[in-house]
């Protein structure tokens, strides 16, 4: 009945990972010069770039909120990101993902600091191999921090799922297509609050709880990678006295 075996007798998956192992992840902050903040994430075979503009004046004007900033997001898959050429432009799936990512980010950003503005997040999927919404959200939160946007915490995201009757972490394309369930999730690591959770497929309650546990542990690891990426971007051997920065003054010409 099973067309493909995704986990072998040693408990290893087709790419040689254990069931609770993440794909190799590399995060880089500040990769774009023109955007206010940016980040690049390589997550297994996924390649994602995220750029942030703002807070900036919100256009069209009728969308402005006098009490807080508007968080807008566009998740886009590039035509060459998948095997079969993807027709460019927003579709049902990417509109949905844009919306849920914007809502997840809105919760962590201190939007009330910037009334009447918009914070625009652009996520481009250069290469996809399952789990792009998680990679995209991970990249977007690093890009937001890089842009200097005040926020509660960084947002790590990961997908868990069920493959060959086993709960596994971080599904690949094959596992996603032929597996039994896929559950992307994003959390605030400090409080454990859930910012994003979707599920496709079926899992028992026990499996679900196990999957969530796995996801939380993986998010901690990704969180660490996000922090490292930001620190690396601004790392200098020694930081000179910043006392001056605390006495801002304007030099008038004589």
């Amino acid at each position: 009945m099973e067309a493909m075996r995704l986990i072998d007798e040693n408990g290893l998956r087709i790419d040689g990972r254990k069931v609770d192992e993440l794909r190799p992840i590399r995060i880089e902050a500040g990769v774009l010069k023109r955007a206010d903040g940016s980040a690049y994430v390589e997550w297994g075979k996924n390649k994602v770039i995220a750029a942030v503009y703002g807070p900036r004046e919100c256009h069209p004007r009728h969308l402005q909120d006098p009490s807080k900033a508007l968080v807008q997001c566009r998740y886009n898959m590039i035509a060459f990101s998948v095997m079969e050429r993807k027709r460019p432009g927003p579709d049902r799936r990417s509109v949905e993902i844009s919306k849920i990512i914007a809502e997840a980010l809105e919760y962590v950003i201190f939007t009330e600091y910037f009334p009447r503005t918009s914070i625009d997040v652009y996520i481009e999927i250069l290469q996809a191999n399952a789990g792009t919404r998680c990679a995209g959200l991970t990249a977007a939160s690093v890009a937001l921090a890089d842009a200097g946007v005040p926020m509660k915490d960084l947002v790590p995201a990961v997908a868990v799922g069920k493959v060959d009757n086993q709960v596994v972490l971080d599904l690949t394309k094959e596992e996603d297509n032929h597996g039994q369930a896929d559950l992307p999730m994003a959390i605030i690591p400090r409080t454990g609050e859930v910012l994003l959770m979707q599920m496709d497929g079926h899992m028992t309650v026990e499996e679900f709880n196990k999957a969530i546990d796995l996801g939380y542990k993986a998010c901690e690891k990704i969180y660490q990678l996000q922090k490292d990426a930001l620190r690396r971007r601004y790392a200098v051997e020694e930081i000179e006295t910043f006392e001056e920065a605390q006495h801002p003054q304007t030099a008038m010409e004589e």
């Binding site: 807070p55 890089d146 920065a245």
Partner: peptide
């Protein structure tokens, strides 16, 4: 994102960017 500084009982973060 910024540099932590403590001054007269206040913890501040001196931003590295932002508007």
């Amino acid at each position: 994102l910024g540099i932590k500084s403590i001054k007269s009982n206040f913890v501040n973060v001196i931003p590295l960017g932002g508007p």
